[in-house]
Amino acid sequence: MRLSHAPPRGRPVEPLLAALLEPDPDRKCALVAALVSGESHSRERGLPGGLPGRPVRPLLVSPREVPNRGLGSVEGRAALCHAVAHIEFNAINLALDACWRFAGLPAEYYADWLSVAQDEARHFLLMRGRLRELGYDYGDFSAHNGLWEAAEKTAHDVLVRMACVPRVLEARGLDVTPGMIHRLRELRDADTIAVLEVILAEEVRHVEIGSRWFRWCCAQRELEPTATFRRLLQEQGIALRPPLNREARARAGFLPEELPDF
C-alpha cells in the first residue's frame, strides 16, 4: 500500500506537480532529476489531495515519540542515517512546493528551487544507500512530520516561507551536522561521514538561496530584512538556539545581527 493523489481532472499532470505528488521515493527522485527549469509555466495553486506524495512508511509520530538511540551501535547509526534521509526526502517536497505554490516570481526563483530539489533528491539517495549498507532501509524507523507542517504553516506567503523554512529549519542542519561528524569520527564511521560532508557543503547554498529570496521579498515590500526576520520568528514562536554554526550561516547569507548572542 502507498499514498496516492489523483491528478487534476481534464488536464495532463505537469512534470513538477507529478514529482511533488509521487509517493515512491525512487520514482520521485527520478522524476525530480528529469525536471527542466522553465518547462512548467501554468501553476495551479494548492496541492491536489492535500499532502505531497510520500510512502506509507516511515510511520509518522510526534517528535517526542521518536526514540533517541546512541551512535555506539549499528542500529543507532542507522537511526541517524534514517533521520537524515527523512529530512532530505521532506526537503525534496519542500523545494518542489516552493516552486509550485508561489506564482509571479522571477524565473531565477524557480530555477533556484528546482536545483535545490535535485540536490535534495541526490542527498536522499546517498543517505538511503548508506542506510542500506548498514542493513536497514528508509521506512524502518519512525519519523516526524515537522518539516512539512512548517510548509503548511507558511503556505500563505513566500516571504514567511523563505524566512522560516530555509533560514530556520534547513539552516539548523548547518548547526548540528558538524557535531554529528565529530561523533562519527570518534566511532570511525568514515562512510557515513562522507555522505554528511557532501550534504553539509551543499546545504550552505540552499540556505543562501533562502536568504537571497527572503531579502528580495523584503525589498519588494520595502521592509527592513533584519527587523522583519526577527519579527517573523517571534510571530511564528521560533527561537534560535545553540549550537550555531556562525561561519556556515555567514556564507549562507546571515548577518551577525540576525543571530542571537549566546
Rank of each mutant, 00 (worst) to 15 (best):
V198Q: 12
Q236K: 06
P256L: 02
C218G: 03
R45F: 02
P166V: 02
E152I: 13
D97N: 12
W213V: 06
W148C: 00
E133R: 07
L96P: 00
A103F: 13
A95T: 06
W216F: 14
R167N: 06
R11C: 02
A121D: 12
E235S: 07
P63S: 10
P52V: 13
P23K: 11
A219M: 12
L169W: 08
D140V: 07
C164V: 08
G53D: 05
L105M: 02
A91R: 08
R251V: 03
L255E: 04
E257W: 04
I193E: 14
D157S: 12
L255D: 00
G146Y: 00
M162D: 02
S40N: 08
F89Q: 06
R231G: 08
R183T: 11
P225F: 15
R221D: 14
A19Y: 03
R2D: 15
A33G: 01
P12D: 10
A107V: 15
M180D: 09
P48D: 04
E203R: 14
D157Y: 01
V176A: 00
L59F: 04
H5I: 11
Y136H: 10
I193M: 11
E257C: 02
A91T: 07
R183A: 14
I92C: 08
N145P: 03
H86V: 03
H41G: 11
F229M: 10
A219G: 07
A107Q: 13
L80A: 03
C99H: 08
P256H: 02
L16G: 01
P166A: 03
V198H: 06
L134K: 13
A117H: 02
R54N: 00
R246Y: 14
L131K: 13
E247M: 00
G139E: 14
P243C: 10
P23E: 02
P256W: 01
P63H: 05
R188E: 15
H5L: 07
R246F: 13
A190N: 08
L71P: 07
L3Y: 05
V158L: 03
A103L: 09
A103R: 09
F262K: 00
L114H: 05
M127Q: 09
L21Y: 01
E203G: 04
L196P: 12
I193T: 11
T177Y: 06
H206L: 06
I238Q: 13
L126T: 05
E44L: 08
H144F: 06
L16Q: 06
R77M: 09
E258K: 05
L96G: 07
R251M: 09
A95K: 10
A6T: 04
A227N: 03
